[in-house]
């Protein structure tokens, strides 16, 4: 099929799945920030999500699908691009592109590893089983506030989250502006400013996400 085989078709698939993953990252951060309103707010948010029942699983399957498509096409396109330049010049000086754009596949794969760790940490509950305590009167529900605040008491998980979010910043700082170009929504006026705006968007996500583990380990949120 044209869309899944052509150069631009697959690029558009990357942009659309990337935009959906980006939307999830934004909503996830907004949800997580209920932590700053205290234990009751975060637990209420968590209970609300769990009460959705089968919708949660449908959502998880959609996310899995988006990740799979984004990763498979990302790797496939990268391999083709490498094959298109079998011998590189001895001297290469780039005029416009940067580290983030040239390492999208690396930052993407690191993010995949981070997502696996994050799920093991807080969803599958394998890495730190001691942080799970049942909530009072919660019918076996876990106290999510305790889970998060205890989960970020040690230096290693905090460090892994900060590193992971650093790669999210890199990935988004190129990807955000890239998706507008790919779906044809850029022009003379947007192109000169979108590069920096994209970095700003990545920075907002970075600061938002790392603030949670950092404020917890430094004892500001407890």
């Amino acid at each position: 099929m044209q869309l899944t085989q052509s150069s631009v078709g697959r690029k558009i698939i990357m942009a659309v799945t990337g935009a959906m993953l980006f939307a999830f990252v934004c909503v996830h951060l907004l949800g997580n920030s209920s932590l700053f309103f205290g234990s009751a707010a975060l637990n209420a948010y968590a209970q609300k999500l769990h009460s959705l029942g089968p919708v949660v699983w449908i959502f998880r399957l959609v996310m899995l699908g988006l990740f799979t498509v984004h990763i498979i096409f990302g790797i496939q396109l990268t391999l083709e691009n490498k094959a298109a330049t079998p011998d590189k010049n001895v001297q290469i000086k780039r005029l416009k592109t940067g580290f983030a754009a040239e390492t999208m596949v690396v930052s993407g794969l690191v993010l995949l590893a981070f997502v696996v760790y994050h799920l093991l940490h807080f969803t599958v509950r394998v890495t730190n089983p001691e942080i799970y305590v049942p909530i009072e009167g919660g019918h076996g529900m876990v106290d999510v506030f305790v889970m998060v605040t205890h989960g970020f008491q040690q230096i290693l998980p905090v460090l892994l989250y900060v590193i992971g979010m650093g790669f999210l910043f890199l990935h988004v700082s190129h990807g955000f502006q890239s998706l507008f170009q790919t779906v044809g929504l850029s022009n003379d006026r947007t192109l000169p400013v979108m590069g920096n705006f994209s970095k700003l968007v990545g920075l907002v996500l970075l600061v938002g996400y790392v603030s949670i583990p950092l404020l917890i380990i430094f004892g500001i949120v407890r």
């Binding site: 150069s7 631009v8 697959r10 690029k11 396109l77 083709e80 691009n81 094959a83 298109a84 330049t85 780039r94 005029l95 416009k96 592109t97 754009a101 040239e102 999208m104 190129h174 502006q177 890239s178 170009q181 790919t182």
Partner: peptide, 9 residues
């Protein structure tokens, strides 16, 4: 030729 990934080089 390879695929465009918006480097703008």
């Amino acid at each position: 030729f390879g695929n465009c990934t918006n480097h703008y080089e």
